[in-house]
Design a protein around this nucleic acid. Structure first.
Length: 279
DNA sequence: TTCCAGGCCCATG
DNA sequence: CATGGGCATGGA
């Protein structure tokens, strides 16, 4: 299928640390899954090409091709720190990921480098997910909550290298599987209520909750603050205020960046990490 | 070898 | 409420 993508950039979108299971094939093609559907996807100028049994509208929705960068940028401040980040990757999109797999992925993300998170995600899929053959390749779905709820903690540690994240991932999978917590119900809640609800899940703190709201629920005002973003904020906007608390950083981010703060966060995150990698 | 990674949890003040 | 230590694992 061929999708009109405008100035969309597939590589920045898939390699900016918001999703962890897409594999790069050769030059510019990626293999991954959109929910239950295997997908091969690549880009030719302003067109996104995909080979997949997925309905076209699902692909469009996942990649958020309906988001309009120009309109988003217009809501963001124009300053010396954000400007180069937007120039670098202002054409990435914040995905609409399936709720559970995004939540589970970020539970496994704490104190892990992006490459490690990808490794863990692949291991979880291969060991517990369902294989799907497509285009001479084997894809794996992300395992359902009930499957991870039944997994042995030792097995999660040994085969997926989860360490101390194993019990929290399993515990949250159990809560979801037993329907003590409905991920779909978060959609109609306010940002504050949804964030507060997520904090009740094992392994979910303020940062993971914000990642889930941003990358799975399209709450574009969510502003996850991880070690990178905290460092960036302190080296830029807070350069003259070294004793600012993390609460002040959080307050600043929401008021300064506004309703699309999540996009600003993702531009800053990806730009600074890419810049650092070049050094 | 030592340091650090898209943090969370729990025990203290 | 805010602060601090501990926590597995693996790559640089």
């Amino acid at each position: 299928m061929v999708l009109n993508a405008g100035d969309f950039r597939l590589d920045h979108t898939l390699e900016s640390g918001q999703v962890f299971h897409w594999q790069k094939l050769g030059d510019a093609a990626y293999a991954g899954m959109i929910g239950p559907w295997p997908v091969l996807v690549w880009q030719e100028r302003r067109r996104l090409l995909a080979q997949s049994p997925a309905p076209r509208e699902q692909v469009r929705r996942y990649f958020a091709l309906d988001h309009k960068p120009a309109e988003i940028h217009a809501t963001l401040p124009d300053d010396e720190f954000l400007r180069p980040a937007i120039a670098f990757c202002g054409n990435l999109r914040i995905l609409r990921q399936p709720h559970w797999e995004c939540l589970a992925a970020f539970i496994t993300s704490s104190m892990k480098q992006v490459a490690h998170i990808s490794g863990i995600n692949g291991a979880l899929r291969r060991r517990y997910g369902q294989p799907r053959e497509f285009a001479q390749r084997t894809f794996h779905t992300f395992p359902e909550p009930a499957v991870l709820a039944e997994a042995a903690e030792g097995d999660l540690r040994e085969h997926c290298r989860l360490g101390w994240r194993a019990p929290t991932l399993k515990a949250t999978a159990e809560v979801i599987a037993r329907k003590k917590f409905r991920l779909a119900s978060l959609r109609k809640k306010s940002y504050d209520d949804a964030h507060k609800a997520l904090l009740k899940l094992p392994g979910v703190g303020p940062k993971v909750a914000n990642c889930v709201l941003l990358f799975a629920y399209e709450r574009l005002d969510a502003f996850p603050i991880d070690v990178w973003i905290e460092r960036v904020l302190r080296e830029t906007y807070f350069r003259d205020n070294p004793d600012a608390s993390t609460a002040e950083l959080r307050q600043f981010a929401h008021t300064y960046f506004g309703p699309n703060a999540g996009y600003a966060q993702q531009y800053l995150f990806h730009y600074w990490r890419s810049k650092k990698a070049e050094e």
